[in-house]
């Protein structure tokens, strides 16, 4: 480590060791991320290391900067400071290891593309410049659609699918990308029960395959059931860790403040014990 001397001194000063940090093992490591709009920080000094092979929910109140965190960490929007490393590499050179599923409202649903087209796009990175996707790519895309139960809609224009079906197509696309790290921005928002089930199933399979998955999640009631870890944000880092230890009423109070009704809080506390 390049700051060995400093580290030694710090240990002496503070009496607790700096956490051992082996970059090559960390699928997704963000340090000191700050994002500002109009010279006002919306995300302040967030450092976070995602646990490998785990399913993590990113939670926090509205405007807490959850989506901003994902986008800025990926370098899709400008950041004021901070760096992201993917398996020890700067994120810019490691984007092929990441699959990002944007919020559903982010694309033009009237675009002339079918469900299969959209999934195929996830494979474009493997197809490479200039070349057209071939039969094997189509096969792969169809398999991904199958995994989310959408094979029957392969040739449907995406605008003619229901909200839940659209979400599933996007999920299939990220599966086709075959990445190591999956970042999903509110995949559960506005979907039907069947889709919710399908998404949960896919997330489970991803984790089984030792993928690292981060999901921006809104519904606090289901955090316990779906996820093993959480990252809690409120414009800044609040807490992170396994659900049992980090998803506590105290942390929730910290993140949500008065915005979470006390009865709601009690209910969550009861659940988490």
């Amino acid at each position: 480590m390049r700051m060995g001397g400093q580290k030694a001194r710090l240990v002496a000063q503070q009496g607790e060791p700096v956490s051992a940090y082996n970059p090559d093992d960390n699928p997704f490591h963000v340090s000191g991320l700050t994002v500002a709009y109009h010279n006002k920080p919306v995300l302040w000094n967030v450092s976070y290391t995602a646990p490998k092979g785990q399913l993590t929910a990113i939670i926090g109140p509205n405007g807490a900067g959850k989506s901003t965190f994902l986008k800025a960490a990926l370098g899709l929007i400008p950041r004021l400071s901070g760096e992201t490393q993917v398996f020890g590499q700067p994120v810019k050179t490691a984007l092929n290891k990441i699959a990002y599923v944007p919020q559903r409202s982010a694309v033009d649903w009237d675009f002339p593309a079918t469900a299969l087209d959209v999934v195929l796009m996830g494979l474009y990175g493997k197809v490479g410049w200039f070349r057209w996707p071939g039969k094997s790519h189509r096969q792969k895309a169809k398999k991904a659609l199958q995994a989310v139960g959408m094979e029957a809609f392969a040739n449907r224009q995406i605008g003619q699918l229901s909200g839940g079906q659209q979400q599933r197509v996007f999920l299939a696309r990220s599966l086709a990308q075959d990445a190591e790290v999956y970042l999903m921005d509110e995949p559960f928002s506005g979907v039907d029960a069947a889709t919710e089930k399908a998404i949960v199933e896919v997330l489970r399979q991803l984790v089984e395959a030792d993928k690292t998955v981060l999901v921006v999640h809104h519904d606090l009631e289901t955090v316990n059931d779906y996820y093993s870890n959480i990252l809690m944000l409120n414009g800044q880092y609040i807490a992170s860790g396994p659900v049992e230890t980090a998803f506590t009423a105290q942390n929730l109070q910290k993140a949500y403040g008065g915005r979470l009704a006390s009865t709601q809080l009690e209910g969550l506390k009861a659940k988490s014990c």
Partner: peptide, 22 residues
């Protein structure tokens, strides 16, 4: 014809295009 795929992708979803390296 040559850039059909790239034009399609970047027109539809520039964010995905960025993460895929286009």
């Amino acid at each position: 014809v040559v850039f059909y795929k790239e034009f399609k992708l970047t027109s539809f979803d520039p964010l995905l295009a960025t993460t895929l390296g286009f």
